[in-house]
């Protein structure tokens, strides 16, 4: 469908207005819809979507792995047993289907994450209850840096206390 205003671009913004039970529909392209932002109020936001960019980022111009055709085919048919998302779906939408997809498509995802975030490892908050071992490990790390600091300050009594705390937590991990 062409934009009803400029008749030059695809209509991608569809507006239905109901005023006093009278329904009017307009079909505009993004450019014209942006121009008529007055009518739409601020409802129109420029559609700068990462989802489409992501798919592009999945493909490397250097073709990272020279997978054989059959391997590629196998990959694209790989299907998440939990939610049913296939790799092709992910490639098209740039969206994951469920938590399990992150494990299943890890090999493809890591290079992508490195490109988008410059990192593949989370260093932030860990949930208290479901964080489990990661949380304990994180606490140990924090205690260790406190310990180093205490030793530097020659606060040996405090350091001894911290050391015991670390030991206790490490035993919990094993």
């Amino acid at each position: 469908m062409w934009c009803e205003r400029c008749k030059q671009r695809q209509a991608t913004v569809h507006v239905t207005k109901v005023i006093n039970n009278h329904k009017t529909e307009s079909h505009l392209c993004e450019v014209c819809a942006g121009k008529s932002g007055k009518d739409l109020g601020f409802l129109f936001e420029p559609n700068f979507s990462f989802h489409h960019l992501l798919a592009g980022l999945l493909e490397s111009e250097f073709g990272v792995k020279s997978e054989s055709f059959s391997q590629q085919k196998e990959e694209s048919h790989k299907k998440c047993p939990t939610c049913g998302l296939t790799f092709t779906d992910f490639r098209n939408m740039g969206l994951m289907g469920c938590a399990n997809c992150y494990d299943l498509f890890k090999d493809h995802l890591d290079p992508l994450l490195r490109r988008v975030h410059g990192s593949i490892a989370h260093t932030g908050k860990v949930p208290k209850r479901t964080g489990g071992r990661v949380r304990v490990r994180k606490e140990i790390e924090e205690l260790r840096s406190k310990l180093q600091e205490a030793i530097k300050r020659e606060a040996y009594e405090e350091a001894a206390k911290l050391r015991d705390e670390i030991k206790e937590k490490e035993e919990k991990l094993n």
Binding site: F50, G94, H117
Partner: peptide, 10 residues
């Protein structure tokens, strides 16, 4: 490793 898992990898 990945932290909180979200629909969009961004």
């Amino acid at each position: 490793e990945k932290g909180y898992l979200t629909t969009c990898p961004t």
